[in-house]
Simulated assay, not measured.
Amino acid sequence: MNRRLALLAPLAFLLPFPAAAEKLPLKDISAYLNSLTTVEADFTQVNSDGTISTGKIYIKRPGRVRFEYGPPDRSLVIAGSNTVAIFDNKSNQPPEQYPLKRTPLNLILAANVDLSRAKMVVGHSEDGTSTRVRAQDPEHPEYGSIELVFTAKPVELRQWIITDDLGAQTTVILGEMKKGGQMGTRLFDISAEIEARKK
């Protein structure tokens, strides 16, 4: 699977995690994710081959996300209209496109996140500093899984790890998140991005 798609399937910033956290209940995590409308943050991505990429992420729930990769990469990943498009800055070819529902990130971009659904959560643990929840599509576990890492008081998403259908892992670590701002639809418009790149 393409490593860009794998990240959709957020070395840390060395965040100052609070000590002795308690395991967050799934209902609290679901409520937190459902409360997110828009998110803008810097991110660091650790790819399955050990390389590191950085950039900016924009999330507009439900169903929309944009990863802008910084130099020297400058690639772009957009999810919108139930589709994921991967723009390779080094290629003149049209973007690769996949149904969003085939990627694990769809689980947190859904209009109503409910981690209590049967067989969705396959791991729920606490390591002293954070709560980790590993989830998969209960109807299609072959699509891979996403492990979400949260800190508490207040609940905050810090990173995620995507394991794709081949077992490769991609980690995305989020910087400080700006929430609730306005985001234009153009950010998530795959067709408009394709047309703009033709000029």
Rank of each mutant, 00 (worst) to 15 (best):
M1T: 14
M1D: 09
M1Q: 06
M1N: 09
N2D: 14
N2W: 01
R4D: 03
R4A: 01
L5H: 12
A6F: 03
L8N: 06
P10D: 10
P10G: 07
P10Y: 07
A12P: 03
L15S: 05
P18L: 09
A20L: 05
A20S: 06
A21F: 02
K23M: 13
K23C: 02
L24H: 06
P25M: 10
K27N: 11
I29S: 03
I29N: 02
S30K: 08
A31N: 12
A31C: 04
Y32N: 04
N34E: 04
S35I: 02
L36A: 04
V39D: 04
V39C: 08
V39M: 13
E40L: 05
D42T: 14
T44E: 09
Q45E: 12
Q45F: 00
Q45M: 04
Q45K: 01
V46P: 00
V46H: 05
N47P: 02
N47F: 06
D49N: 14
G50Y: 02
S53K: 01
S53Q: 07
T54E: 07
T54K: 13
T54D: 01
K56N: 07
Y58I: 08
I59S: 06
K60G: 06
P62F: 00
F67A: 04
E68G: 00
E68D: 10
Y69T: 00
G70T: 01
G70N: 10
G70C: 01
P72S: 04
D73C: 00
R74A: 01
S75H: 04
S75P: 00
S75L: 02
V77G: 03
I78E: 05
S81G: 12
N82K: 15
A85Y: 04
D88S: 06
N89E: 02
N89S: 06
K90G: 03
S91Q: 11
N92D: 10
P95A: 05
Q97F: 01
Q97V: 09
Y98R: 06
K101Y: 08
R102V: 10
L107M: 10
A111M: 04
N112P: 00
V113Y: 03
S116D: 09
R117P: 00
A118H: 08
K119G: 00
K119Y: 08
M120C: 02
E126H: 05
T131C: 07
T131K: 10
R132H: 13
R132N: 13
Q136V: 15
D137L: 12
D137S: 13
P138W: 13
E142P: 09
E142H: 13
I146P: 03
E147Y: 09
L148G: 08
V149M: 09
V149D: 13
F150S: 09
K153N: 15
K153I: 09
P154C: 10
V155K: 03
V155G: 06
V155I: 15
E156K: 15
E156I: 11
L157W: 15
Q159F: 02
I161V: 15
D165P: 11
L166M: 14
A168W: 11
A168I: 07
T170A: 07
T171D: 12
I173M: 01
L174V: 05
G175S: 04
G175R: 11
G175T: 10
E176Y: 11
E176C: 02
M177D: 07
K178W: 05
K178Y: 08
K178A: 15
K179T: 12
Q182P: 02
Q182I: 12
G184F: 06
G184C: 05
A192H: 10
E193F: 05
I194C: 14
I194L: 15
I194N: 14
I194A: 11
A196I: 04
A196K: 15
K199V: 09
K199E: 09
